[in-house]
Amino acid sequence: MPKILVNSRPLLWLILALPGLWIGWRWAMTPDAYGYGHAIGDSGDWAAWLLMATMAVTPLRLMFRRQRWTGWLMRRRRDLGVASFAYAAGHTLIYVIRKASPDLILAELSTPYIFVGWIALALFLPLAITSNDVSVRRLRRSWKKLHRLVYPAAILTFLHWVWSAFDPTTAWIHAGVLAAIEIVRVYLQRRQRVT
Rank of each mutant, 00 (worst) to 15 (best):
M1A: 15
I4R: 12
V6N: 11
V6Q: 12
N7P: 01
R9A: 04
R9Y: 06
W13P: 05
W13M: 08
I15E: 03
A17N: 10
P19L: 00
G24P: 02
T30G: 05
D32H: 09
A33N: 08
Y34D: 11
Y34R: 09
G35S: 01
G37V: 07
H38Q: 14
A39G: 14
I40H: 06
G44L: 08
G44R: 08
D45R: 15
A47D: 04
L50E: 04
L51C: 04
V57L: 06
V57H: 08
T58I: 10
P59V: 10
M63S: 15
F64H: 03
R68K: 08
R68D: 13
W72E: 02
W72R: 13
W72V: 08
W72I: 13
L73W: 06
R75S: 14
R75M: 13
R78I: 08
A83R: 01
Y87N: 00
Y87A: 05
A89R: 07
T92W: 14
T92Q: 02
L93V: 15
L93H: 08
V96G: 00
I97T: 11
K99S: 13
K99H: 01
S101A: 02
D103V: 14
I105P: 07
I105T: 03
I105F: 03
L106W: 14
E108K: 11
L109W: 13
L109N: 03
Y113H: 10
I114Y: 02
L125P: 04
L125C: 01
L127C: 00
L127W: 05
A128I: 11
I129L: 12
T130S: 12
S131P: 00
D133G: 01
R138D: 00
R138Y: 04
S142G: 15
K144F: 11
H147C: 07
P152W: 03
L156F: 06
H160M: 05
H160V: 04
W161L: 10
P168L: 09
T170N: 12
W172A: 04
V177I: 15
L178D: 02
A179Y: 07
I181D: 02
I183D: 01
R191V: 04
R191N: 10
V194T: 12
V194K: 14
T195L: 11
